[in-house]
Design a protein around this nucleic acid. Structure first.
Lengths: 205, 205, 205, 205
DNA sequence: TATGAATGAGACTTCATTCAT
DNA sequence: AATGAATGAAGTCTCATTCAT
């Protein structure tokens, strides 16, 4: 009996994972609206009604896809604590770049959603904005730790510019494919961030 | 008689413009799939079937929206020909930033489409990639003109980084709203581009 | 002025013929409902509104297609007046078979329409029934002339069976293509008709 | 519990049957294109979307109508095994005629489709051609069994002529209504087939 | 822990036709 | 003798979702 329950639970989680995999694959290819439940059902082999057993609605499904991809990404890098600011920023950006190549789904999907201004599809978009804010806070803490003498406004601008570069280069890589070397270009971006930070704190002095 | 003929012809073009206006407004808000013909029809006042007189299908309509917005944007700035590279780049980026604030549709819509990788449904996405390539060529010519001693590969990287920053900051502005000053941040980006260009050509010497 | 008028009339008839050609080609391929005005317009190169200048509506257009094809067919054979009944029937059927291979449109289209039981599409279906009745009368006169001693009921049955064989073999030829030799099979049918006629008149004696 | 399950399953099949009944009734009256899903929906009481649960698309629905009607028809007659060839052929044709009066749908619909030569839209037309080939094979076996000394080519021609007569008389009955006695005329056709078979095998000796 | 069947709304698109010029 | 533009109705089909089992 206990065995059966455990088996059941395990099967349930396996089904959930199959659904998430299928949804991620489709959503990344076709966007939020292009991801129909029927398509996900066909790809994962479970009937549409089973998808609704695991997820409240389509919105929650996409939100879960984003959350899972973000967790993988954010678990794949940490803020370096040793070395000069130059080395630490470079190391951090290199880690982030690699994590982005390994878990790009949340960003690809999230940017699509972020560019729309709809009131609907609340939870998927909200999920992206939440994880983005989380990443932003992590970055701000890291930069504040590495570089001294920045006002909050300056720090904010620095983080905004840092993320913008990452977003833009991520898009360039998505569009341009292998012709765009994401790691190298993010390295260039790391350099620009350092320059900017120094100019900022220098201007302050 | 001639007047009447002209009136007729003008009416056709006026209808076309009304449809494009409505489609642009909706597509920017809701994306490609969120833009239904029924919504466009309701907003422009013409029946759905009339939209199909002017445009082959929905895809062609969105492509036309992108093309028109891009033409407005690219007609709103030129590459400066006088002054030091510093001043010229700053002036150019300032123009581009303003044009982007005035005609953002093609970029907003285009980025949504570019992030999707659908196998079929070409023309709207293809249109964006085409105009993007055109803008890229214009920029490359401008940078090549302003800065000496760059290899083609370096020029390419410089342009990629320039556009990535613009895309990323555009997105930051879309998400963050007025909290993000697009013109100021693109000014910072212009500075980074100059530094990068100098580092590149210096490395060459 | 007269020249212009004549030219115009000539052009008008040329347009009419182009429309009929296009409509025939499409209708034979796709049937009544499958023949859209837009398709005809695309094939003949004239705008849809021009088709309505030449024909009252779609129904009248299809009726005209049937009428033209029937006129070609019925003008391509005559009832033989010399020889034994055997030879005359054989000669007649051979002519009819050849005419059917040359002008099959009215029969193909007509049979499609005849098999439907709709109240609508009045004139095209009515046109086929009219020309079919005309052909039936011609045949009945021919048979009555060739074979003596048939009651009206017998003559009617003979004609019905004759036409049924022609229809069925025509269909067999349409479906089976070159594997079915229409002329040879209609020759067999001619033989069967003779046998039947003799049995009928013999039974009467 | 089992009852309930069975009930559920039965309900699905009952719905399927209701849809098929409605579609058959409409398709026979109005042809392939005249059979709109909305019409079928209205007649069977299920919403249009439910029709798509049971059938892939309209084409598959019509194909199923044809298949079901053909099965009824072909299950309603057998090839007689006793008696002289004359009696056997007459008995067989009489059975076939009666079955045709009882289950005429597949032939009426099929002939409409067979007369069209559309490039695409395969499955309904393909279904008719398939069942027609099946009927043809059954007939050929029957004739081969009843009549000795026919070459394969002769047998083929005999079957083609037999089917053509049936098709043509079926059409005559459809057009002419009660004025045409299908059973009597098919009896005449049976006679013609016997004559032809004897002429063929005699020619061979 | 699932799933077969159903459903109303709405998607894109084409239809035959009209009308002013 | 012709046509550019428009139009309401209807076409096929997919949508996200629900519910009884």
């Amino acid at each position: 009996m206990e065995q059966a329950t455990r088996r059941r639970r395990v099967n349930g989680e396996a089904s959930r994972a199959k659904i998430l995999d299928a949804a991620a694959e489709i959503a990344v290819e076709r966007g939020y609206d292009g991801t129909s439940i029927a398509l996900v059902s066909a790809k994962c082999g479970l009937p549409a009604s089973s998808i609704y057993w695991h997820f409240r609605d389509k919105d929650a499904l996409i939100a879960a896809v984003i959350a899972r991809s973000f967790e993988r990404w954010s678990g794949a890098w940490t803020i370096p604590t040793d070395g000069t600011p130059e080395l630490r920023i470079e190391a951090m950006v290199a880690q982030i770049a690699q994590a982005l190549l390994d878990s790009p789904d949340f960003l690809r999907l999230g940017l699509m959603l972020a560019l729309e201004h709809r009131p609907v599809e609340a939870s998927a978009r909200a999920m992206f904005l939440r994880v983005r804010a989380e990443a932003r806070a992590t970055l701000a803490a890291g930069f504040g730790d590495m570089i001294d003498g920045l006002t909050p406004v300056q720090l904010d601008q620095l983080v905004t510019y840092a993320i913008a570069g990452a977003d833009g280069l991520f898009i360039a890589n998505e569009i341009g494919g292998d012709a765009v070397d994401l790691v190298e270009l993010l390295g260039i971006h790391a350099h620009a961030l350092l320059d900017l930070a120094q100019r900022m704190s220098g201007a302050r002095l």
